[in-house]
């Protein structure tokens, strides 16, 4: 997560969000597009890391469409980016819950892709980390992304995933240890 310093003269992203959210809640799609452009990268990254590249575009769209519909419910007590982020995590987890034992599809569309492990890339630690994360088992990867990449606490993760915080902690540790093996 990269933070930016802004000078006093320029509005912060949070201030821009506040203004645009108010407009978008009243129906201004141009304002919502600005919101999209500011947050799409981060949300798409989150989706990609949690679910893999195959559904990332679809799920990202779904997240923003949901956000548009729920905009009136955003009360402004927290930062908009936090609210959007939680909405995104909820959508991601709900999608995962839909995964079923038997899945039939009929029609011209291709069957859903299996999650492809990332390619190993030696051009830098960050690329390695993305590739290594892609290789983690889903549960461990989810917790690692939520805690170390996105900054949720174990209590919050427990609430989101329906596990005890202790489980989250031990899964996180296992994820980190596995990544350490991949990266060294």
């Amino acid at each position: 997560m990269v933070s930016t310093l802004s000078t006093a003269a320029e509005p912060t992203a949070a201030e821009l969000d506040r203004a645009d959210v108010a407009r978008a809640a009243a129906g201004d799609t141009a304002a919502f597009e600005r919101i999209y452009r500011r947050h799409a990268g981060r949300i798409h990254g989150l989706v990609r890391r949690m679910m893999g590249p195959a559904e990332a575009d679809d799920v990202t769209q779904e997240i923003f469409v949901r956000a548009w519909r729920k905009l009136e419910l955003f009360r402004g007590e927290a930062a908009f980016s936090t609210w959007l982020h939680r909405l995104a995590v909820n959508v991601i987890l709900a999608r995962r819950q839909q995964a079923v034992r038997h899945h039939e599809r009929f029609g011209a569309e291709e069957p859903p892709h299996e999650r492809r492990p990332g390619r190993r890339d030696t051009t830098g630690l960050r690329m390695d980390l993305e590739a290594a994360m892609a290789r983690l088992p889903e549960g461990a990867r989810r917790i690692f992304v939520l805690h170390d990449v996105e900054g949720y606490t174990h209590e919050e993760i427990g609430a989101l995933l329906g596990v005890a915080p202790g489980t989250s902690k031990s899964q996180l540790h296992r994820a980190r240890m596995t990544l350490r093996d991949y990266l060294t």
């Binding site: 079923v100 034992r101 038997h102 899945h103 009929f106 029609g107 011209a108």
Partner: peptide, 19 residues
């Protein structure tokens, strides 16, 4: 289901829920 081939029909079931 009767549908044009450009539209997919998606049937999922798990235990006793069918979508």
């Amino acid at each position: 289901a009767t549908h044009p081939s450009t539209t997919g029909v998606d049937i999922r079931h798990s235990g006793d829920v069918v979508r």
